[in-house]
C-alpha cells in the first residue's frame, strides 16, 4: 500500500486503474457472432448435404425433372455459399454483431475496418482454400482415407489459424486459440491411434467435431468470459450521476 493513502482511496484507485484492462478483455471476447457463424455453417452444410442427397436420389429413382430442379437449386445454393464465404459474409456478420450487441453498445479494440484475409494476404487465403478443396476432393475420390483427413487438414488449418492470430494480434479473443490447439491435439491423438475415430454412419463426425465442435467450444468460452468481464467492468466503472458543473442539463 502506498504511503499516505487510506484504505478506501487505495481501493478506489485500484478499481479505476483496472477499468482499461476489463474494458479490453470484454471487447476482445465478444465472440457471440462466431457462434452465429458456426450456426450458419452447420445449417448451410446440412442444406448442401440434403440437396445433394435429394439430387442423387431423384436421379437414381428416375425422377428426372426433380433431379434437374434439385441440381439447379444446388448450384444456386453453392453460388450463394461461395458469395457468403468470400464476399458478403463479412458484411452480414457485421450487421448480426450490431444487432446482437445492440443493448450493450459497440466497442472495438482493433482498427474499425479490419481488412479481411482476401485483401490483406490473398496468397495465404488462396493457399488455404486450395488445401481445403484439394483435401476434400481427394477424400471424395477415395485417394485420401477418411481416417487421415483430419490429421492432414491440421497441417494447414493450424498454421493458418496461427497466422490469423499473429496478424490480428490483440483484436480477437484469446480463447479462440483453443480452436487450433484442440484441433492439433485431436490430429496427434488420431495418428497415435487413440480411440477417437468414428466409423460407419458417424464418419462425418470425424471432421464435424474438430471443425465445428472445437470452434463452438472456443467461442463459447470467449462469450462466457465476456459476460464475466462486462459484469466486472460495470462494477468498477459504475459512475455516480454527477452533473457536469458547466450546468449542462439532461436531454
Amino acid at each position: 500500500m502506498k504511503a499516505n493513502m487510506t484504505e478506501p482511496e487505495n481501493k478506489q484507485d485500484n478499481d479505476l486503474r483496472e477499468i482499461p484492462t476489463w474494458a479490453r478483455r470484454y471487447a476482445e471476447n465478444r465472440t457471440l457472432p462466431m457462434l452465429v457463424f458456426f450456426g450458419i455453417f452447420v445449417v448451410g452444410s446440412a442444406a448442401f448435404g440434403g440437396l445433394s442427397y435429394l439430387t442423387a436420389w431423384a436421379y437414381v429413382t428416375g425422377h428426372r425433372a426433380l433431379a434437374v430442379a434439385a441440381m439447379l437449386v444446388l448450384c444456386g445454393f453453392a453460388a450463394w455459399w461461395m458469395w457468403f464465404s468470400f464476399v458478403g459474409g463479412q458484411r452480414i456478420m457485421r450487421r448480426i454483431t450490431a444487432r446482437l450487441y445492440r443493448s450493450e453498445g459497440t466497442v472495438s479494440v482493433g482498427p474499425a475496418a479490419e481488412p479481411d484475409i482476401w485483401r490483406k494476404s490473398p496468397a495465404v487465403g488462396f493457399v488455404f482454400m486450395f488445401c481445403v478443396i484439394a483435401s476434400v476432393g481427394l477424400g471424395l475420390l477415395g485417394v485420401l482415407p477418411i481416417r487421415y483427413m483430419q490429421p492432414i487438414s491440421a497441417l494447414y488449418f493450424v498454421p493458418f489459424c496461427v497466422y490469423l492470430g499473429i496478424t490480428q494480434r490483440g483484436t480477437g479473443s484469446p480463447f479462440m486459440s483453443l480452436w487450433p490447439t484442440l484441433y492439433g491435439i485431436h490430429a496427434i491423438l488420431l495418428v497415435a491411434g487413440a480411440p477417437i475415430y468414428f466409423g460407419g454412419k458417424w464418419e462425418a463426425l470425424n471432421m464435424l467435431i474438430p471443425v465445428i465442435g472445437y470452434g463452438v467450444l472456443a467461442a463459447l468460452a470467449g462469450h462466457i468470459y465476456s459476460r464475466v468481464a462486462l459484469h466486472r467492468l460495470r462494477m468498477l466503472a459504475a459512475s455516480p450521476e454527477i452533473p457536469d458543473e458547466t450546468g449542462a442539463q439532461e436531454q
Partner: peptide, 10 residues
C-alpha cells in the same frame, strides 16, 4: 479510463 482500454466505444 474506459476509453484508454479500447480503440473506440459508442
Amino acid at each position: 479510463m474506459l476509453l484508454s482500454g479500447v480503440d473506440s466505444a459508442d
